[in-house]
Structures are given as C-alpha cells and as structure tokens.
C-alpha cells in the first residue's frame, strides 16, 4: 500500500514539475526551473500538508472550544475566552517564535518530560502553533454560526423529546455548518497564506524553497514562480469551496446567487 502511494506521489510530483516548467517558460530562464523545480514542487507539497493537517485538527478543537465559549458555566468559558482573545490579538509570527525558541530555553525541563523530540523539530512546532491558532479563529466562527441558528430550533427539538446531545448533532450543527461554510473557506485561505511563515523557522515549504533558491542564485524570478503557485493554490481552494457551498445549500433557494450588478 505505502509503495503504491509513494509511486503515485512520485509520478504526481514529476508531472507537476513538468507542467509548471512549461507554464513558467514565459517568466524566465528554463534552466532555473530545471535546477530548482523539484524543490519548489516538494515545497508546495509541504505547504499543502501544513494547511490540511492544521485546519483539520483545528476544526475538531475549534468545535469543542466553541461549545465551551458558548457555555453557561463561567469557569468553563473563561479560559477558552482568554485563549481565543490572546491568540487573535497577537501576530502568528510571535506565537510561532514563542513556541519554537521559547521551547529552546526550557530544554532541560522538556527533556525530563520526554517531549523534547517534539519541540526540537521546527516542523512539529509549526503544526502545533498553527493548529492552536486556527482552532481559536474557527472556534469564533462556529460560536457565531451556532448562535445564528434560531432559538426555535432548540425549542422544537425539546418539544420532540430529542436529547440535548442529539439536538446538537442532528438539528443544530447541520444548520450551523452551512452558515460557517463561507468564513471557514476564508480561514483556510488565510492559513495557506500564513503557512509561508514556517519558512522563517527553517521549514522548507513553498516559501522556504523559494528563499533557498533565491539565496543561491539571487534570481528574483524564483519569487515570481512562488507567487504564481500560491495564487493557483488559493484560487483552486476558492473554487472547491464555491462548489461545496453550492452543493450544501441546494435546498435553500438563491442562497449563493450573486447580487444583481450595480447593487
């Protein structure tokens, strides 16, 4: 199985190198792509991995946190509020450096706890920081979406004798998810863009590989290549989200119809 996956990703990688090499002919010297195309495409893979891993775990954590944020219990709500507020009020770059370099200072303690292998690797620090960061933003998205489900839906569930947990799962969440869809798409795009910061702590994502190639060649075109790839990635994500949105709101008339021109 893993051999098949390796062979498929290998072929996909080669195909992408060839495809983008062809695309980039008008931008500059083909030799540049020949030397760095492989690295750039694998950097793109790392960028996609960062976004998929952190956004997925972030969704799960964000959902849990959103219920805590909306909870009636003050002692449950307070720590999540503080977390969400401070994550959203500070730059991701500071958070990333706090985890990566801050961990360095506590090497002894972390070794004693047996988690030094985790904080030593920039890759894990990036995944941890980004997951917590997107979880905070997604928690706010879900909190808003759940609050936007009309109160009558809760009452109707109670009247039907459905338990609280079942009401959440069968009645509230499906409606909230539809409302959360658009801001979630924006959050994924923000994460694609934010993932570039990983390059600053030595992770070789798309930005990291572009920086590496630039430091070797001082050829500015490499940044243009990277820019084009980021734009393609963001545009594909946006379109996937449009399709998803249309599909999930089929039952709502005109939910995604564009406003009339000039409105």
């Amino acid at each position: 199985m893993s051999e098949i996956i390796a062979s498929v990703t290998g072929q996909l990688h080669a195909a992408l190198v060839a495809l983008f090499g062809f695309l980039f002919i008008p931008f500059g010297d083909p030799e540049l792509w020949e030397r760095y195309g492989n690295r750039i495409v694998s950097g793109l893979g790392i960028t996609i991995q960062i976004v998929i891993i952190t956004c997925t775990i972030g969704t799960v954590l964000g959902l849990i946190a959103s219920f805590a944020l909306a909870s009636g219990n003050r002692w449950l709500r307070a720590p999540f509020r503080l977390f969400s507020y401070s994550v959203r009020g500070t730059p991701l770059l500071v958070q990333l450096f706090l985890v990566y370099y801050g961990g360095l200072q506590f090497r002894g303690t972390l070794e004693a706890l047996g988690v030094w292998w985790f904080f030593r690797e920039a890759w894990y620090c990036v995944l941890l920081t980004y997951t917590l960061n997107t979880a905070a933003y997604q928690a706010e998205i879900f909190r808003g979406a759940i609050a936007a489900v009309p109160q009558g839906q809760w009452e109707a569930s109670r009247a039907l004798g459905i338990g609280r947990w079942q009401a959440v799962r069968l009645v509230i969440l499906p409606q909230a998810m539809v409302m959360a869809l658009r801001p979630l798409g924006n959050e994924v795009i923000l994460m694609i863009k934010a993932s570039a910061l990983a390059a600053l702590v030595t992770v070789l994502d798309l930005m990291g590989e572009a920086r590496y190639a630039y430091s070797r060649t001082y050829d500015f075109t490499i940044y243009i290549y990277a820019a084009v790839l980021y734009l393609i990635l963001v545009e594909i994500t946006r379109r996937i989200w449009l399709v998803l949105e249309r599909r999930l709101t089929r039952h709502i008339p005109d939910a995604t119809a564009s406003p009339p021109p000039g409105a």
């Binding site: 795009i189 694609i192 863009k193 934010a194 993932s195 570039a196 910061l197 390059a199 600053l200 930005m207 572009a210 630039y214 500015f220 940044y223 243009i224 990277a226 820019a227 980021y230 734009l231 963001v234 545009e235």
Partner: peptide
C-alpha cells in the same frame, strides 16, 4: 485578487527585493 491571494511575507519580499 493578487494581493489577497499572496502570502503577506511574499508580497513584502516582492516589494523589497523587486
């Protein structure tokens, strides 16, 4: 479309080095 799609870090490099 371009500046909402590019990472801010890359925009900064494009402006600075460019």
């Amino acid at each position: 479309w371009v500046f909402r799609g590019l990472p801010e870090l890359l925009t900064l490099f494009l402006v600075f080095y460019g």
